[in-house]
């Protein structure tokens, strides 16, 4: 074995580390004992190995890493990459903003659905509203509607037609005029029962019950509502009581 061949083998020798016996390591080490120049080189290689090892083992370990690992483990969740943590936070923020934008831009417009209309107008009369015209005469109220550009060619069931009026108001909805006819549905003398009848064009209320369909009932707040359509006119009646109570007004 030459000195150079021995160096190749000895380079793999690490002081203090148990190695599998290299087939020629013993021979190379024996050569070290008899070759002072090789011995000096071998000693220097050992020192270089130790110096490099010391440098690599001096790489500082980030403070908090141990705690982070243990905390993540305790929380039983997959560790979030350090580098991606900021990115994830930013992504969540962007997602929230985009969601808000999309929601406000494309949220269902209550003014173009029948449900929205019913909830809004019936809710409004329960919270309080201003009656523009008051009077008990339904014919006078109809004239008032005509003066406001609201439809007057409505046909009321006999039960409603014979009730005394209380007044009326006209308001816009979806670029159409809606007539609200307020009636006194007193069932007993001296007991006043308000009935609210909203009348609008079916073209203003997409999703309203189709003509000829059975009346549609739905509770809105404290009032029961009943909706039916005749021709192009959608009638929405709201009042106290239940479905049976309102159903009677269709007779």
């Amino acid at each position: 074995m030459t000195r150079e061949e021995a160096k190749k083998i000895l380079a793999l020798h690490r002081p203090g580390v148990m190695e599998e016996a290299h087939p020629q390591m013993a021979e190379a080490l024996e050569l070290v004992r008899h070759d002072p120049e090789l011995a000096a080189w071998f000693e220097q290689q050992g020192a270089i190995f130790q110096a490099i090892r010391a440098k690599l083992k001096a790489v500082p370990v980030p403070q908090g890493l141990r705690r982070q690992i243990i905390v993540e483990h305790a929380a039983n969740k997959r560790p979030l990459p350090f580098a991606n943590r900021m990115l994830l936070t930013a992504a969540i923020a962007v997602l929230l903003v985009l969601t808000a934008i999309v929601w406000f831009r494309f949220k269902p417009n209550s003014e173009i659905t029948f449900d929205g209309y019913r909830s809004r107008v019936v809710g409004k009369v329960q919270r309080g509203y201003f009656m523009e015209m008051t009077g008990t005469n339904q014919a006078s109220i109809r004239e008032y509607f005509a003066s406001k550009g609201a439809p007057t060619n409505y046909a009321l069931p006999r039960s409603l037609e014979k009730l005394p009026g209380e007044g009326g108001v006209v308001f816009p909805w979806n670029s159409h005029q809606v007539a609200l006819l307020c009636l006194d549905g007193a069932s007993k003398p001296g007991v006043k029962t308000d009935l609210y009848l909203f009348m609008a064009s079916s073209s203003a209320l997409p999703g309203a019950p189709a003509p000829g369909k059975k009346p549609d009932f739905k509770k809105v707040g404290a009032l029961m509502t009943m909706t039916w359509t005749i021709g192009d006119r959608v009638y929405l009646l709201a009042g106290n009581g239940d479905e049976t109570t309102l159903q009677k007004y269709l007779e």
Binding site: P62, L65, Q68, I69, E72, H73, R78, P79, P81, F82, A83
Partner: peptide
């Protein structure tokens, strides 16, 4: 440092 931390954490996660 970030990648080294990730790898170390990931290793212990896999251990768990």
């Amino acid at each position: 440092e970030a990648d080294a931390c990730d790898l170390t954490q990931q290793t212990f996660y896999i251990w768990a």
